[in-house]
Amino acid sequence: MNILSILNEALSWILILSGAFFVLIGAIGTVRFPDFWSRLHAASVSDSAGIILLFLGMAMQAGFSLIAVKLAIIGAFLFITGPTATHATANAALVSGLRPKEAEGLTAAEPSHKSKNSKKDPHKIKGVKP
């Protein structure tokens, strides 16, 4: 029993500290990345990994009680709605015509999309190939 409680404590320590680490990393990436489309990546790291780890750690800290149930409900809700909100944001940005910055050596995925095809049919994106 004692060993189990020590194990529980250590595991919740690890989970909460790694969750805090991921949240911090995501926020730093949100500040320092150059582009909206790359900021999405940093935001998703903070939005799913950090949050889930933190809530798991807190639920392990609370033990089997109503608090753990509430934490699980909040964690499941955030786990569903976080990627949904991020997808909605990315979709709105894509429809509004925001395009990724191009690096120097990279060729554009759709070089003449904005000038030529946007008046005809903006929803059909041509030339997007991996």
Binding site: G26, A27, T30, F36, R39, L40, A43, S46, D47, G82, A85, T86, T89, A90, A92, A93, S96, L98
Partner: peptide, 9 residues
């Protein structure tokens, strides 16, 4: 959209 993302986060 940066601002919306930041608000969500």
């Amino acid at each position: 959209y940066d601002r919306v993302l930041a608000v969500n986060l």
